[in-house]
Write a protein that binds this DNA or RNA. Structure first.
Lengths: 167, 167
DNA sequence: ACAAGATGGTTTGCGATCAAACTATACCGC
DNA sequence: GCGGTATAGTTTGATCGCAAACCATCTTGT
């Protein structure tokens, strides 16, 4: 095979059988020691495991966090909820639309600031959250096992430091 | 489309000024000790800091990881790239379309397996990656500082363990 | 009190991502 | 070989997320 050059996207050039790392042994290079890279892989693995545990039909981690924050801070505003859960306000709106449609939360206008809503759980929301919390607790116990009891506190502190320093 | 203009709340109930956590002191409840929750916040903070550092116009962490993996494993397939970077193959395709359009990578059919492409960096891709690597290294040095030199190895190991155990 | 700016919420536009359906090719058992 | 199954890549459809534009309301400076 002659090695052709050229810049056509998707032009099917043939390559002789060169090195081809083929096997699963992919080298990570500098990535291997980057905190950011491993942070992403770990977070996504955790996310998927959680979603799988509660079932595809159910509520995802993001919704769970929002419901918990609402229960812990009844009447909080959407903006406060967004800050606490690390989501943009334009993400909070449709998420709450969904939770409201499902009858899990209420939005009430407040006299104090008529721009904002006071968000609260409905009894139904409390019930669903209680169920979700069981799944979440089981999920986090699994994470605890992986991390190890003796390392958890330090690990959490490092994660908090990263979020705080870069947030 | 939840078509609802700012004027009409869905259930326009007025709430007298009840507790209203108002201030920024939002209680996290059980979330405070969940590894998954802090993992997500830390990852997103890191992601945003990286994107900001390389500039909005430039390539995001995901593209950087892909370019690095291609450089470290020239000729690897899209499937292998997806596995290594933790992305679905249907995510890899448009990402490589973009990188190819920018002239940073090439896709060549191989004789060995005519279903797959051998992906490689162009000289232009090498140059862009070199520049990106400088930013990434600076970013990770910042993370190193936050985590602390003496904690980094252990921290990385825990992240790897989580990704491996739940992946 | 009033104008200027800040803030809460919604909408729109865009990119990233996955899952599932599909095509083409490779591999395996017989 | 042949058929069945597995794999590489693409396409489509859906969800999630952010940023920016926008309106309504609150706050602040003077």
């Amino acid at each position: 095979m002659t090695s052709r050059r050229g810049g056509e996207p998707h032009s099917p050039r043939m390559a002789a059988d060169v090195e081809e790392p083929a096997g699963e042994a992919v080298r990570l290079g500098p990535l291997a020691d980057y905190i950011g890279y491993h942070l992403r892989l770990a977070q996504e693995a955790s996310f998927r495991a959680f979603a799988q545990r509660v079932g595809d039909e159910d509520l995802k981690p993001q919704r769970f966090a929002m419901l918990t924050l609402i229960r812990e801070n009844p009447g909080l505003t959407q903006a406060a909820l967004g800050r606490a859960s690390g989501r943009d306000k334009s993400t909070v709106t449709p998420a709450l639309d969904d939770l409201e449609r499902r009858g899990l939360i209420t939005r009430e206008r407040t006299a104090r600031d008529r721009r904002s809503y006071a968000v609260r759980l409905t009894p139904e929301g409390e019930a669903v959250l209680a169920e979700l919390t069981r799944h979440a607790a089981a999920h986090d116990r699994a994470l605890d096992e992986i991390v190890g009891r003796e390392n958890k506190a330090e690990f959490l502190n490092l994660l908090r430091r990263i979020a705080a320093a870069l947030g």
